[in-house]
Simulated scan of single mutants.
Amino acid sequence: MQLSKGFKYLSIVGFLRTVLCGMFIYITSSDHHDVHDIGMIGYIILTIPYYILNYKANKSSFKFKKIMHFMFFLTLIPLIYWYIQHAVKRRAGAYSIYAYFEWSLILQDVLNDHWYANDYKDIGLKCMVDH
């Protein structure tokens, strides 16, 4: 199967997004605050083209994807609010609430990937070796 140019871009964006996600999951803010924040912000920014390219690459289950993606971005509102409460206003307990929203983004992302797996089940990688 010949992959479309859009799918190649989707793969690149998806890979970079996964690396950035790993940065903010495995490097905690207490370990290295700036690296954690760069990973989180980059992950959220790359989510926009990732979702758009997924729409273009496979239009099946468009309505469900739209709802899932809306929920992802809706979660950013309380996430940002609680981050400000923690970082700027130094409100007690705000970081714990923020962390729930931060991890809910990961859970939503895993659910999205589960849904995409069904869309792309016919695509696989092959290793071409000369014998």
Rank of each mutant, 00 (worst) to 15 (best):
I41M: 08
D130I: 13
Q108S: 05
Q108V: 00
K126S: 07
W82L: 12
D37R: 06
V88M: 09
Y26H: 01
F7V: 14
S4R: 15
K65Y: 10
I123Q: 04
H36P: 08
Y100F: 13
S96Q: 12
K121M: 08
M40K: 07
N58L: 01
M71Y: 08
H131C: 02
M71V: 09
K65G: 06
L53P: 06
N112E: 05
T18R: 00
D113W: 10
S60I: 08
W82A: 01
V19I: 15
I77F: 10
L46W: 02
K56R: 14
R91H: 09
V13H: 13
G93K: 10
M128D: 02
I52Q: 05
Y120R: 07
G6I: 14
W115H: 15
V13E: 04
S11G: 15
G42Q: 06
S96H: 09
F62N: 03
K66Q: 06
I48M: 08
F15R: 04
L111S: 06
V19W: 03
Y98S: 04
L16I: 12
A87C: 01
I12D: 01
Y51D: 10
H86G: 03
R90D: 10
L53D: 07
M40I: 00
Y83M: 10
F62H: 14
S96Y: 13
P49C: 05
I80W: 02
A57D: 13
M23D: 05
D119A: 12
D109T: 15
K66M: 11
